[in-house]
Design a protein around this nucleic acid. Sequence first.
RNA 1: GCGCCCUUAGCUCAGUUGGAUAGAGCGUCUGGCUACGAACCAGAAGGUCGGGAGUUCGAAUCUCUCAGGGCGCACCA
Length: 648
Amino acid sequence: MYRHLQRRLEQHIRDFLRGTYDLDLPKIVIEQPPKVELGEYALPLAFELAKKLRKAPRRIAEEVVSGIGQIPGFEKLEIAGAGYINARVNRAELAASVASDRKQSFPAPAGKVLVEHTSINPNKAAHVGHLRNAILGDSFVRLLRFAGREVDVQNYIDNTGVQVADVVVGFLQLAKKSRAEVEQLAAQPRFDYYCWDLYARVSQWYEQDKQNLQARVQALHAIEQGGNETAQIADLISIAILRRHLETMDRLDIEYDFLPRESEILHLHFWDAAFEKLKSAGVLTYESEGKNQGCWVMRRAGTTQTAADPEVSEEDQKVIVRSNGTVGYVGKDIAYHLWKFGLLGRDFGYRRFYKYPNQHDCWISTTNGQPEHPHFGDVAEIYNVIDARQSEAQNTVIEAVRALGYHQQADHYTHFSYEMVALTPRCAAELGYQLSEEDQARAYIEVSGRKGFGVKADDLIDTLIASAKKEVDARHPQLNDAERREIATKIAIGALRYFMLKFTKNSVIAFDFREALSFEGDTGPYAQYAIVRATNIFHKGGIDPESYSPGECDFAKYLDANDIWELWLSASQTSYVIDQCIATAEPAYLAKHAFQLAQLFNYFYHQHPILSESDEGRKRFLLATVAVVRRELTRVLAVLGIEAPRAM
RNA sequence: GCGCCCUUAGCUCAGUUGGAUAGAGCGUCUGGCUACGAACCAGAAGGUCGGGAGUUCGAAUCUCUCAGGGCGCACCA
């Protein structure tokens, strides 16, 4: 509703400027005044126009205010300070509209959106860094769906790469396991933890003697070729670990629609199709001499062509096809992304792989698939949730798409980049890792799967649940254990998801148990608690919060109070904030909004006793306020993937 | 060496399109539960927005420069 009024205001301003000054500004800045007393929208417009119109800002503001006339939904425009134009909405009208939850429909852009996230190498347990990726990605999916977009969620599985090969080497060379034994181990509940340790052991083994790296090369070869025992073991491992990852993410309500695997990109020859296009478009060039002799290369993203040297210098070359004829990761990624946009002319085979408790099917790629399957790919926009370290590789893929002439697709290819999660030295010490003096002095230390250094996702979730459970046990002894566990789980998920979302994407998270385990202040449970409080008011009053309607309610009479009005205003902004989140690819703004709404509500809750209110009209109004905040906060948290428990 | 990112209160972070007195949480100190449950609320202390220059009516935000930190720059993925 807030968003709707803002657009209306903007339109009236535009019409006025065009009619009076014959001006068409590229954008009209509309913001919120520092205090609600000043109004709901602020326009610094007069400052910008002062020079253009050769008039004092205040004078311009006066002309706008007196000339613009009545705007539906608005009370009036006012001049403030040196020339701000503040707009006051009709509070009662806006409140009535929010209370009845009237939706202003905005048509969503056409076309499907593809969000790729998680994409963990299927060779070890997921850790905190992967959680940030998955939670950011899943929340963005929810944001898009809230805005009415159709979204495909994909999780790319690199099942034929070095990392899987390393664990295969671990099983064969270090653990001396047979295929049957690996199969048995893979059926164990925490097979991913076993592999976590084994992977670290293999990495050490390589360091002990560089000769050992031969084993990796051989395993990698065998896996890529397929049809042998090594490849079968690799497949066994990657499938089992993948299932574990899906289970871990399912604990956080994160689901996927399709799991494209590198093995199919290889076996279905996606690269061959892409290679032909890239060659004929001249995107790739063959190097007949120099250090990249015998390779097909393209210009690395971020490097620029100079007039003096139109050829791509060796420094700026990215090898796409190696001199032995095999294609590297970036090449496969180009092919994969042409498929995403429906430009490759080939498709995966599909089969069902995983069924979520809600009956939703997750599909996986295969060479010979089922005839009936959903249509994946062929989308209008893509978002790749991949950490910032890979931005150069991502940009190279985008540039390849662009160089093939697909400008529109390249413009709708977003590297949803985020910074890593690292551990504080204290956290590392708590986990029992020995740190060098140099590392101890750092603000944070990068997690490393190779070193087995990191906090495993399931461990973190378990710790959070246990910690929440202790609190719930103490606060709600009357509930049975299953009920308390259910509540604790929701609190734990709320805390974790919020923690990963409250930081903006380009801030490195220095992970620390103390902060992540906090349930107070700027946390998920704080917002959940506000909902529980709101619900309790209704329950104590014997009213159903979902169906509550204030009936005749004189909003105008009660909304003069700025503190309560601020709460209504904030509650009306959900769609507006969500638009901002999508436009900037930044879910953190919604987390901030949830916190602010909860904070305003808690203040209100403290200031205004409701059930004991003797004035019936005022009581209805206060209950309507609670109902609206509860509804909006629940909605906002749902977009963040957080649910409020029944009690806290 | 080249490229990208970061530097805001004791700590951890917001500040999206340049705009009104730079905000939160935690921590510290003070106060508030006979309850719509205090996982809460109120108040206090705490800032040369890394340094410098520039653009602008206006800069934490844009440009340049210096300093410090992080991450990339494989015929790995």
